[in-house]
């Protein structure tokens, strides 16, 4: 058997606009691989959000809409209600999903919208210049928490997956990471599962992927991966918070 490493068909040969060492690229590739392997590309409608992934509608070879900041779950709802047989996914960062779009994601989950959410959590607003996000961990320095996030001033970081897991409509909730190959593989499995949940018509599925932001964290790419493991994972534990028993790998 020959194992070939090639570009997934659902990913277009465009240049990524991400910073060196950013793991968005890996996550997007995993989404494309999942679409390929599940043969979903022809019937998929993607919804791009606002943030570093804002231009990812240039990258996926599927029909796509661009949503306003935070509103991707609502746009996806509109698509899915008109096209119940299509596959709808959204790809949001933590600024988009966990700050300005909190209401939209919570209520999409509450309604059990049959959509797949890829939630990239890098604990910071990347594109706008490294500002504090709701997911910024305590003590983390950002351009808007220059002395480190202080619980008495900025409050505590939001654990989105744990929160969404309390909602019955959210049938698949999982947190993974892409800081090393083992976890990249696990993330791939989780993303595929999140699409399968949608294909089975079971409800809302979300994969929160911990991602690195070397540029805004002020770390080298390798140190940034270490930071994910040492700083983020202890606060954002990995694992499946909800799974529909019917879904198998």
């Amino acid at each position: 058997m020959v194992r070939e490493f090639s570009r997934p068909k659902s990913l277009l040969p465009e240049n990524y606009l991400y910073c060196p060492g950013c793991t968005h690229g890996i996550i997007q590739r995993l989404v494309a691989e999942a679409l390929d392997e599940l043969n979903l590309t022809p019937k998929t409608v993607g919804v791009a959000a606002v943030g570093c992934s804002v231009t990812n509608f240039h990258l996926f070879d599927v029909d796509m809409q661009q949503a306003p900041h935070g509103r991707a779950p609502a746009v996806a709802t509109g698509v899915k209600r008109v096209l119940p047989d299509s596959t709808v996914f959204i790809y949001q960062g933590d600024g988009d999903l966990a700050a300005i779009g909190t209401a939209e994601i919570v209520h999409a989950a509450a309604r059990g919208e049959k959509i797949t959410v890829i939630f990239v959590n890098n604990a910071i607003f990347g594109m706008t210049g490294g500002q504090m996000a709701p997911t910024t961990i305590l003590g983390q320095k950002t351009t808007t928490s220059p002395y480190g996030r202080n619980k008495d001033v900025e409050g505590y970081p939001l654990r989105v997956s744990e929160m969404l897991a309390t909602i019955p409509g959210a049938v698949y909730v999982s947190r993974t990471s892409v800081h090393n190959p083992k976890h990249v593989n696990r993330t791939k499995k989780a993303i595929k599962k999140a699409f399968q949940v949608q294909e089975n018509g079971e409800g809302f599925a979300i994969v929160e992927v911990l991602s690195s932001c070397p540029t805004n964290w002020g770390l080298s790419p390798l140190d940034a991966l270490k930071w994910v493991e040492e700083k983020m994972i202890p606060y954002y534990p990995l694992g499946e918070f909800r799974t529909p028993s019917e879904v198998t790998n």
Binding site: V45, R71, A74, V75, T77, G78, V79, V82, E104, A110
Partner: peptide, 25 residues
């Protein structure tokens, strides 16, 4: 489909999605 949204903001974005999917909305 009639859908009561969680907010006015969500409603207009659902309109975006539905319209983009080709429906009169």
């Amino acid at each position: 489909v009639y859908l009561q949204s969680e907010s006015e903001v969500a409603a207009i974005n659902m309109v975006h999605g539905a319209s983009g999917a080709g429906a009169r909305v």
